[in-house]
Amino acid sequence: MSIRHGLLALLDQGPRYGYQLRTEFEARTGATWPLNVGQVYTTLGRLERDGLVVPDGEDEEGHLFYAVTEKGRTELRAWFDTPVPRTNPPRDELAIKLAMAVTVPGVDVHGVVQAQRRHSIQALQDYTRLKARALAGEAAAGGVEGTELAWLLVLEQLIFQAEAEIRWLDHCETRLANHRERQTAAAPAAEAPRRRRTKQQLGER
């Protein structure tokens, strides 16, 4: 899992304590996936249980440091060397919503598509503003490195994903329009779709 390996990657650069790990994780990802410190300690506990990290002393302020073990390094290398599997795509709420919208009678599918499109374009505008700012910073500083570069890459991934979603929405609309045309052509008499109605629905008419 990504938090687990993210923490291993940070610890690979030297011993760190929980709060520090959280700050550095968020700096690299622009706080796109905020971590709470509890999650960090839970994950460190599991990593320790699995022998991937060991406690590495305390400083005078009482921060408990952790260090990566040899086994942890091996695990980290294996993570970098293995592609992220796409065999079990994560559940996508939008895909599920549209799949339901086209099959549940009475849903304004175009309304669903357009509301999502507006929302996603707005997100895309925000990401683009942030990117323009990051690039302006890059130009001023004569290049980006380290955490800034990491953040720029994460930001661009969000941009590509939002773009892909909007393209897919456009495609859905085209497909729906084609489908409607075919249906109209196949049934010129415009027969009302037969469906069972509840008494209540019938009563409303």
């Binding site: 968020e26 700096a27 622009g30 706080a31 796109t32 955490t147 953040w151």
Partner: peptide
């Protein structure tokens, strides 16, 4: 976005 903006402005860790 707010979080992201904050982190952009945060001194580099």
């Amino acid at each position: 976005i707010t979080a992201a903006t904050n982190s952009l402005n945060r001194p580099e860790a």
